[in-house]
Design a binder for these strands. Structure first.
Lengths: 204, 204
DNA sequence: CGTATGCTCAAACGATCGTTTGATTCCCAC
DNA sequence: GTGGGAATCAAACGATCGTTTGAGCATACG
């Protein structure tokens, strides 16, 4: 009945790779299905269209990514001793954990590309499905940075997310030095990004 | 002899708009030449190919942008009282001046897109033609931030350029409100970006 | 065993892409 | 005024795109 589970999975995996490398329009279904070793028509059969496949690639990754982000945020939010670093950790760590996964690292590249493309349809899809995540983080930033005006806060968050998106799309491409484990390298990168973001958000 | 000056210019102007809106592959020569009100074959006649047109769009803008950047840098470099803010001003101001120009602002979008696309051919072109600019600024940053290791400096510059590229590509907060003159808004934006970049580069 | 259902496959569809061609128009030097 | 190179034009080229089709295959159920 469902012998196509592996077919769908192979398509999704190949799509993530090719979308990251060549973009959504640049990656053709013929390249994609060849890489996945499935028939050309399998994409339209299982997903309906190429656009639906794009949405599915996003949905699958963003559901878990933002789920982990909200879970981590809810563990630190509201508590008296919560610091800016705690909130930033809840935002950054799940994204880099995704990069630890084999093909997951490519998804951050896909995300950065989609961000830069200003595609209206995709922006609306992301806003509708995941806008509440950014809103919750923004609310927590506002609580921890009461001295900033609303406009000033938005400015800084905009700049910080730009830097983080850029950096995280490159993570995984950076080759680790010998002798450093993947976990250690990730931890080091997280600390780096948190320090930078803290400075960018809370400077006088 | 050169009645095609306006034709070439119209193509370049239309290319900047459409490349920013739909990307290099997404913008077709038929859309482009229709928008420029020139014949379809004019692009291949005047530029040789679509790829050459892309290069020309980059070359034309980056020549003046980086020329202004280097000129501004040479005015502050080496002097005893030079601050980090001076160097950042030399880097940021020419880019925002470009944004002030009508179609010039779209080029920053084109640049951000190209940045996110990780296109090898384009990266090599940029590195060959404009790599020395970034190298000169990096040297000056190193001189003003001697306490940072080489690796740490590269990290921070990477993050800052990511944030600036993101911001200047016109994502969010950079839009001007009513009642504020264009020049005043630009000055305010420059001050904003410089403060953020300074914090990101020089935090302890 | 027969059949219904989910899936895969090769082939073709129309559309659109970048590029080329060959004729035509323009414009200035002579 | 006339010749000739530069520029523009409509039309067509082959390639590639996303999608659709209909036949063939597999497997589970009566």
């Amino acid at each position: 009945m469902n012998s196509s589970a592996s077919t769908k999975e192979r398509i999704l995996a190949a799509a993530e790779v090719l979308f990251a490398q060549r973009g959504f329009d640049g990656a053709s279904l013929r390249q994609l299905t060849a890489a996945a070793e499935v028939n050309l028509a399998a994409v339209n059969y299982h997903f309906g269209s190429k656009d639906k496949l794009v949405e599915e690639v996003f949905r699958r990754r963003l559901d878990t990514l933002n789920g982990h982000r909200l879970a981590a945020l809810s563990e630190v939010t509201g508590k008296p001793g919560t610091t800016l670093e705690d909130v930033l950790d809840a935002f950054i760590r799940p994204a880099l954990a995704l990069s630890g996964d084999g093909t997951g690292s490519l998804f951050m590249r896909v995300l950065a590309r989609a961000f830069a493309e200003h595609d209206d349809h995709l922006r609306q899809f992301m806003s509708e499905n995941y806008g509440h995540v950014m809103r919750q983080f923004t609310a927590e930033f506002a609580r921890l940075l009461p001295q900033l005006s609303r406009e000033e806060l938005y400015w800084r968050i905009d700049l910080v997310t730009g830097a983080l998106t850029h950096a995280m799309s490159g993570f995984g491409m950076i080759q680790r030095k010998g002798g450093v484990s993947e976990a250690a390298h990730r931890e080091q990168t997280i600390a780096h990004l948190i320090r930078f973001a803290t400075a960018g958000l809370s400077h006088p």
